[in-house]
Simulated assay, not measured.
Amino acid sequence: MSDQPPPHPLTAADLSSRLRGLAEHGETAAPATGAQVRGRAARRRRGRRAVLSTGALAAAAVTTVAAVTTGALGSSHKPAAPQASPSPAPVQRVTVDLDAHTLTVEGHRFTIGAPVSFCPIGETTVTVTAKYPVVNLRPSEQHVGRAGPRKWAVTFTDRGHRQRLLLFAMETSDLPALGKDGILGAVALAPADGKRVYDIIRPGARVEFTGRQAARTTASDAACIDRQPVTGGH
C-alpha cells in the first residue's frame, strides 16, 4: 500500500474550469493543422461567394425595377408614346368677285347674280354661320322684291349680330339677274349651281368679296328684302 493520501476528488465546477483552461491553451498554443487551415480558407471563400451572390441579386432587382419603370429591356410595361394632337382642318376659302360675277370654291367657279349697288352685302369678309335647305322671307314693307322661299340658303352674321342671307339658289323668275347686279342684298346662283355650292361649302368657311361694292346700304333694310334677318328656317 502507498503511504500517499488518496487524491481529493474533483468537483464538477473544478472539472469545467480545467477543461476551459485546456481549450484556451490549445487555441493559443497549439499550431493549426493543415486541415484546419484549409477549412478556414474554404469558409472564407464561401463567405465571399455569399456576399457576391447577394450583391448580384440586389443589382438584378434594381435592373428589373428600372426596366418596369422605363419600359427598357423589352418590358411589357412600356410607357405610352405621347399622342400628337390632331391638326385642325384648314379653313375653307370662298371668293366672290362682284365685278366678274363669279363665285369660286374648292377649285370650282360659278356664275352669280350680285347685289344691286343700293342693297350691298356690306362686308368685305364674312364667315359662313349656317346652311338651310329653305328659308322664308316676309314681304317687304315697300313690296319690293320677291317674298317667300329661298332654297339652299347659306347665311352669315353681320356686324349688327344678325344672321342674314349670303347665298341662295334662284327660282326661274330670278334668272334674268344671273351674271348681273340684280339681287336685293345677297348673292344668288342658278338653281343647279345653288345646290352644288350648298353641298360644297361648310359652316366656318371664310368668304372674301372682291371688286366693286358699296360700303353701306343707301336704301332701307325694308326695301332690301334679301337682307332680312334669318332665324332658323324663317
Rank of each mutant, 00 (worst) to 15 (best):
S87V: 11
S87K: 11
A89D: 09
A89N: 12
P90H: 07
P90I: 09
P90T: 10
V91H: 11
V94H: 02
V94L: 03
V96A: 07
V96Y: 01
D97W: 00
D97V: 01
L98K: 04
L98I: 01
D99L: 01
D99S: 02
D99A: 01
D99W: 00
D99G: 01
D99K: 00
A100N: 05
T102S: 08
L103F: 02
T104K: 04
T104F: 00
T104S: 11
E106C: 12
G107E: 12
G107I: 10
H108E: 15
H108M: 13
F110T: 10
F110G: 12
G113W: 01
G113T: 03
P115W: 00
P115N: 10
P115Q: 08
V116S: 13
S117P: 13
F118S: 15
F118M: 15
F118Q: 15
F118I: 09
P120T: 05
I121C: 09
G122F: 08
G122P: 08
G122S: 02
E123H: 04
T124C: 07
T124M: 07
T125K: 05
T129S: 14
T129L: 09
A130N: 10
P133T: 03
P133L: 01
V134E: 05
V134H: 03
V134A: 02
V135E: 05
V135H: 03
N136H: 09
N136P: 01
R138Q: 15
P139I: 01
S140N: 08
H143C: 11
H143K: 14
V144R: 08
V144K: 05
R146W: 14
A147K: 07
G148R: 01
P149C: 07
P149N: 03
P149L: 04
P149K: 04
R150G: 11
K151N: 14
K151W: 11
W152S: 13
W152R: 11
A153M: 09
V154H: 08
V154I: 15
F156I: 00
T157R: 06
T157F: 00
D158P: 02
R159K: 14
R159S: 09
R159W: 09
G160W: 02
G160T: 06
G160E: 12
H161Y: 04
H161Q: 03
H161G: 10
H161K: 12
H161R: 08
H161E: 07
R162C: 08
Q163T: 12
R164S: 05
F168V: 11
F168G: 11
M170K: 06
E171Y: 08
E171Q: 13
E171G: 12
E171R: 15
T172V: 13
S173L: 10
S173G: 13
D174R: 11
L175A: 10
L175D: 06
P176W: 06
A177N: 14
A177E: 11
A177Q: 12
L178I: 09
L178F: 00
L178Q: 09
G179R: 07
G179H: 00
K180Q: 14
K180L: 05
D181A: 12
G182C: 10
I183S: 14
I183T: 15
I183W: 07
L184N: 15
G185K: 12
G185Y: 13
A186N: 12
